[in-house]
């Protein structure tokens, strides 16, 4: 039981790191500034930056996310919570892909 909890916690930490990395790269904000309660609209310099973030997540996750699921996401924590509902290996491989985002 304890091992299972520890594995779950490790997965959540990995997910958080991956999400923060994508947001940090796209919005050019240091990871240390991406607290869970920070609103994406406040972090983004403009609407284009927000669009780019959404499309990067979509590309990274290979179409596994739906508009309805993310349309009302507001904060960094919301993105992390949503990502935690996805299979662990999906976000991990997504994170690797964003190192060289496809054009």
């Amino acid at each position: 039981m304890e091992a299972l909890i520890l594995r779950e916690e490790a997965h959540c930490m990995e997910t958080r790191d991956a999400v923060v990395e994508i947001i940090s790269q796209t919005l050019h904000v240091a990871p240390a500034e991406l607290a869970d309660d920070r609103k994406l609209v406040d972090l983004a310099e403009d609407s284009i930056a927000l669009f780019e973030l959404l499309i990067r997540f979509e590309q990274a996750l290979g179409g596994h996310i739906k508009y309805e699921d993310i349309a009302h996401i507001e904060t960094v924590g919301d993105v992390i919570a949503y990502a935690n509902t996805l299979p662990a290996d999906l976000l991990k491989s997504a994170f690797n892909r964003t190192q060289n985002p496809p054009l």
Partner: peptide, 19 residues
């Protein structure tokens, strides 16, 4: 092209959705 999030927030108490 421009969207003023502050004007929207001042009028409606929240910023526009991501889309």
């Amino acid at each position: 092209f421009a969207v003023d999030h502050d004007v929207y927030a001042a009028a409606f108490g929240t910023k526009p959705t991501l889309f």
